[in-house]
């Protein structure tokens, strides 16, 4: 049994916040534990990221600056003025290849509730630049918990009538609450069903994700499709060929804004940390390590093969 959110830690300074109170009413049976600062609960070295995934706690907290960040090398930069922000740390899904495992001492979910402080900072940077591409689903899958916390909707409302493209990168299917809005970019991460089953624990099945894509297309959105990370499973050519054919049989590529794709890669320090705690064959494959990045030796060949399967629309290799 997964005891997710059986414990909720709340910073004393946000305890009386109305959003916090609303969240707490959703978890009637949970232990509510007051804390001084989320870092007291989140940062200690003597936690097990892996063990906590079986019973993630929720931490409700106030974030302090910085509120937005520039893009790192390992993620895509589809647009200039790319920024990401972290309204939440960690994720309720549990993908074997997730870099968060190598980054945080804890897998507990931290939800920052001081939305206004985020907005003020974004507003400042945005006014300066004139436009902005902002991912709010970078250190998490924000849509996965949309039914509980409604964070994406709060952000969607904030960017309305602003020249800010809001990216919602996701494996989730909770899209019902969104009416068409031209500056929201749904970016659906898709993988072959055997990859989902083996490496993307707790995530929706491929068919449900395809259904969600169709739903947003029907609403008028032009979603992005993300094939990243591509995992070299046994027989990967056959697996990915069938998978990509299926996607574009079911979804008209003309309704897609662009395709983002890339093979599995990871910072080697994070790779080592994760290998120590997660038993997954992903961490036992013979990769090459170049400039501190772990990746497939035949990456170019895999990419070429995947490219041969993609329709002729805008593409971003990462």
């Amino acid at each position: 049994m997964n005891l997710r959110f059986s414990h909720i830690y709340v910073e004393k300074r946000v305890l009386n916040d109305s959003y916090v109170q609303k969240i707490l009413t959703k978890f009637k049976g949970a232990e509510i534990i007051e804390i001084n600062h989320y870092k007291d609960r989140f940062n200690p070295y003597y936690q097990s990221f892996r063990a906590q995934k079986q019973a993630q706690s929720l931490i409700l907290a106030k974030k302090e600056a910085p509120f937005i960040y520039g893009a790192s090398e390992l993620i895509q930069k589809q647009d200039k003025n790319f920024f990401y922000t972290t309204p939440m740390l960690n994720c309720i899904y549990d993908c074997h290849y997730c870099f968060l495992q190598g980054m945080y001492p804890s897998s507990n979910l931290v939800l920052f509730v001081n939305f206004e402080d985020f907005f003020d900072e974004v507003e400042k940077v945005y006014k300066n630049l004139g436009n902005m591409f902002l991912s709010i689903s970078y250190d998490t899958d924000i849509l996965a918990v949309e039914n509980l916390f409604g964070v994406a909707k709060i952000w969607a409302d904030f960017v309305k009538n602003k020249d800010i493209k809001l990216e919602l990168r996701t494996k989730a299917v909770n899209v019902d609450g969104f009416e068409y809005q031209k500056n929201i970019v749904f970016a659906f991460s898709l993988s072959p069903e055997i990859v989902i089953e083996k490496y993307e624990k707790y995530t929706p099945k491929l068919d449900s994700r395809i259904k969600a894509i169709k739903k947003v297309i029907n609403k008028g959105f032009r979603p992005v499709i993300v094939f990243d990370p591509i995992i070299k499973v046994p027989n990967y050519k056959k697996v990915y060929e069938e998978f990509i054919k299926k996607i574009f049989r079911e979804i008209d590529y003309k309704d897609i804004e662009s395709i983002v794709y890339g093979t599995f890669r990871m910072n080697s320090t994070q790779f080592k940390i994760i290998k120590k705690q997660l038993l997954s064959d992903i961490y036992y494959y013979p990769y090459s390590v170049k400039n501190g990045i772990v990746e497939y030796k035949d990456k170019e060949e895999i990419i070429k093969f995947i490219e041969s399967l993609l329709p002729n629309i805008k593409k971003f290799k990462v």
Binding site: L3, S6, H7, I33, D40, A51, Q52, A55, S57
Partner: peptide, 22 residues
């Protein structure tokens, strides 16, 4: 016990028959 002196937190990850307290 789920909190000690306001700064240490044993992780309770399994269901159990007890009440919890700091």
């Amino acid at each position: 016990v789920n909190k000690i002196n306001n700064k240490f937190f044993p992780d309770i990850l399994i269901s159990h028959p007890f009440r919890e307290s700091e």
